[in-house]
């Protein structure tokens, strides 16, 4: 079926009526609200623009984003490198498996108190907890990906005398990419959750901390704007990831579409 432009618009419109209705209902139902927990949406949005389209955004959100990016980048690096090493060795897996299995079974957020004990309340604690939690799914996916390399592809590479490192870089790793990306996505979501959790638990700075303090001080409007901003950030991060993935794995999705 060919997607004409009006068909596309129609699909967008069909997808839009529910969010529009929700926002409209929220707006009208809360307009006269006397319930302190559900202030009028108009006031929330007013406060939202006031807070987040100002210097406050830089002061509050940047530290969170910096920790998030740093922790996630480290997790990607460690997860993929370690995963490739472990996945490439049969004995490596046997020894590493129980440890990996245990660490990944601990809810990511519950590891934060451990890092608070080790590092105190500084940046190292936040970055370390983000890194460790986000590394696990990436590590596991990379191990699986490298291990499940297609036999025919690897043997073809061997017959054509590709060196070990060429086999790794040109055959095994690209073949493992779809799986690695699923690990990267899970890691991304965990990294975001732990970023916020590390601010909820070890108070100090950042958007999570801001929102929690607002809640505790009954600054309800500020709390709502914090929640909305965190939700939007969480959503945007996923959108950006999807775009990167679609681009990097265009061969994979192209192939899947045809088969």
């Amino acid at each position: 079926m060919i997607m004409t432009w009006w068909r596309r618009i129609l699909i967008v419109l069909i997808g839009a009526w529910i969010p529009v209705t929700i926002i409209y209902a929220w707006w009208t139902l809360s307009a006269e609200s006397a319930n302190p927990y559900f202030p009028p949406l108009s006031l929330i949005l007013e406060r939202f623009t006031e807070l987040w389209f100002s210097q406050e955004f830089v002061v509050t959100v940047f530290p969170s984003l910096r920790n998030f990016i740093l922790g996630y980048a480290l997790a990607c690096l460690i997860g993929i490198v370690l995963g490739t090493l472990i996945g490439g060795s049969r004995t490596g897996i046997k020894y590493a498996e129980p440890i990996i299995d245990f660490v990944r079974s601990i809810p990511a957020v519950a590891t934060v108190p451990i890092f608070i004990v080790i590092f105190g309340l500084d940046i190292a604690m936040r970055v370390a907890s983000i890194t460790v939690a986000a590394t696990m799914p990436i590590l596991i996916a990379t191990i699986q990906g490298v291990r499940s390399a297609d036999v025919v592809q690897v043997e073809t590479a061997r017959v054509f005398h590709l060196s070990k490192s060429q086999q790794l870089w040109r055959v095994r790793l690209p073949g493992a990419l779809p799986l690695i990306f699923s690990g990267l996505q899970l890691g991304l979501q965990i990294a975001f959750i732990v970023t916020i959790a590390s601010e909820f638990l070890g108070s100090g700075f950042g958007i999570g901390s801001f929102t929690l303090i607002a809640t505790e001080s009954f600054l309800i409007l500020d709390a709502w704007t914090g929640v909305i901003l965190m939700g939007l950030l969480g959503y945007l991060i996923n959108v950006v990831f999807d775009i990167v993935e679609r681009f990097t794995l265009r061969w994979y999705y192209g192939q899947k579409k045809i088969v």
Binding site: V152, V159, H161, L162, S163, Q166, R170, V171, G175, W251
Partner: peptide
């Protein structure tokens, strides 16, 4: 030695273009 296998969907690397697939063994 060069090989051609039955399972072309698996012996050609789907992430490489035709050109890169052909030049892959020549890299060395």
């Amino acid at each position: 030695l060069a090989v051609v296998l039955q399972d072309y969907t698996r012996s050609l690397m789907p992430w490489l273009t035709v050109e890169k697939n052909i030049s892959l063994p020549l890299r060395k």
